[in-house]
């Protein structure tokens, strides 16, 4: 590998100073699973790698009155095992458990995952369906970024130079809400999903939908919210017609990439199928 400097500050403040001093030539490393590959392939040549591993406060996972707070340095493995995560939504824990393989889950972190903005990833989809927001900080202060505005393009986020992702906040779910994450893996079990769908819904006493979130992975260059599909469900019972209509609207909202995991048209159709399955699961 090509030489670079490595800095490993003990505090967040130090880290922000280092980043601010040379944001263009400093890359931030959390777990490092994606970054190290880019470095090895010599696709990026930073002057400096800023390692976050000593900043323990970024590792915390906590349930609060407002909901759930997930530290950016929490690994996928920690999150999958966390009772607080499971208590918030079992689907969230199982989403983290569905990421890649055990080795990656033990090394890769939530923050690294979000900042890398790989459109094939699992956690952003479920976090989006759970109304997650990222909190980032620079020397100039903290900023809350709803996840549907964090991802701007393939491997691109709205994080500003000098900003570090600190945590993800999830609001409490409505009472009796149900959530699911469906990952379509038509080839090997360790593959990226062809498409994935997360859904979170709640219904009133008569079975009418009072809350609907549908998020799609592999459906575009960024994780998507299927807002029209969500709207179509509001106030309705989860009968066949409602579910199919929402699935069709979700499929229509997609703009997938043709790649080794499927053609754009196939992915679009599969978003329909898996949205329908997700909704039947939580209906």
């Amino acid at each position: 590998m090509r030489p670079f400097d490595y800095v490993e500050p003990e505090t967040l403040e130090e880290a922000l100073e280092i980043l601010a001093a040379d944001p263009d030539d400093t890359v931030v490393m959390a777990g490092g699973t994606s970054l190290v590959i880019l470095l090895k392939q010599d696709l990026i040549r930073p002057a400096r790698v800023l390692g976050l591993r000593r900043i323990a406060e970024l590792r915390a996972i906590s349930a609060t009155d407002e909901g759930l707070v997930l530290g950016a340095l929490a690994t996928h493995g920690m999150l999958a095992r966390s009772p607080a995560v499971r208590a918030h939504a079992a689907a969230l824990a199982s989403t983290f458990a569905a990421v890649a393989t055990v080795r990656i889950r033990e090394q890769a972190t939530l923050g690294g995952n979000l900042a890398h903005a790989d459109p094939a990833q699992d956690p952003p989809v479920t976090l989006l369906a759970l109304d997650g927001a990222a909190v980032a900080r620079s020397r100039f202060g903290e900023r809350r970024i709803p996840l549907d505005t964090l991802f701007t393009d393939l491997f691109e986020t709205s994080l500003e130079p000098g900003e570090l992702l600190l945590r993800v906040e999830l609001p409490r779910l409505p009472v009796a809400a149900r959530a699911t994450y469906q990952k379509f893996l038509p080839a090997t079990r360790d593959d990226y999903a062809t498409v994935s769908v997360a859904a979170a819904v709640a219904t009133d006493a008569r079975g009418a939908c009072t809350h609907a979130r549908i998020a799609l992975g592999g459906a575009a260059t960024v994780p998507l919210r299927a807002r029209e599909a969500e709207r179509s469900l509001m106030g309705r019972r989860f009968d066949d017609a409602a579910i199919r209509e929402a699935a069709a609207l979700a499929a229509a909202a997609t703009d997938p990439i043709d790649d080794l995991r499927g053609s754009a048209s196939y992915k679009r159709a599969m978003v329909g199928v898996w949205t329908e399955r997700a909704l039947r699961e939580v209906a």
């Binding site: 392939q41 260059t221 990439i257 790649d259």
Partner: peptide, 17 residues
């Protein structure tokens, strides 16, 4: 050459953009 290692789909998207 090596730019191709970024992946064809990704590059197609960038070129498209």
């Amino acid at each position: 050459g090596r730019i191709g290692e970024l992946g064809q789909p990704l590059i197609a998207r960038q070129a498209d953009k």
